[in-house]
């Protein structure tokens, strides 16, 4: 089963309990605020990360936005397609535009993530 959790920093963690992997992406709201994404910086595979670490960045003409690790663990895969097709982040932020996959080291950190509803409230307020 895949469960989605959100952060106030506009990331999504889609956790798959069969593999124990979490896929990180940015929300549709974030891509739409950023505008045309022209460059994505991804972490290196094998990097050990702590929750809250800056692990990459998304750049549009307008602005640069840092990506923070929503959970701790190890980066096991990154979406290499974004190196040549950064616009995938606008077209399909949660699917084809995923950023990286994390092998979680502290499963309980998922509990601190927001529900879709609470996430929506976090930027509307």
């Amino acid at each position: 089963m895949i469960a989605k959790g959100y952060t106030e920093e506009h990331e999504i963690l889609a956790f798959d309990d069969e593999t124990g992997l979490g896929t990180v992406s940015i929300t549709d709201h974030a891509q739409s605020s950023l505008g045309d994404v022209v460059f994505v910086e991804l972490p290196s595979v094998g990097t050990a990360i702590q929750k809250g670490d800056q692990i990459g960045a998304v750049e549009s003409v307008k602005a640069a936005s840092d990506i923070y690790a929503p959970v701790s663990g190890e980066v096991v895969e990154v979406n290499e397609r974004l190196n040549t097709e950064p616009s995938l982040l606008n077209k399909s932020p949660e699917d084809e535009g995923w950023l990286c996959k994390i092998k979680l080291s502290a499963l309980e950190e998922r509990d601190a993530l927001l529900s879709a509803e609470d996430y929506k409230k976090s930027y509307e307020s």
């Binding site: 974030a30 605020s33 602005a63 936005s65």
Partner: peptide, 8 residues
């Protein structure tokens, strides 16, 4: 993420 996004 939007620390820089909306800065300014």
């Amino acid at each position: 993420m939007p620390t820089v996004l909306l800065a300014g």
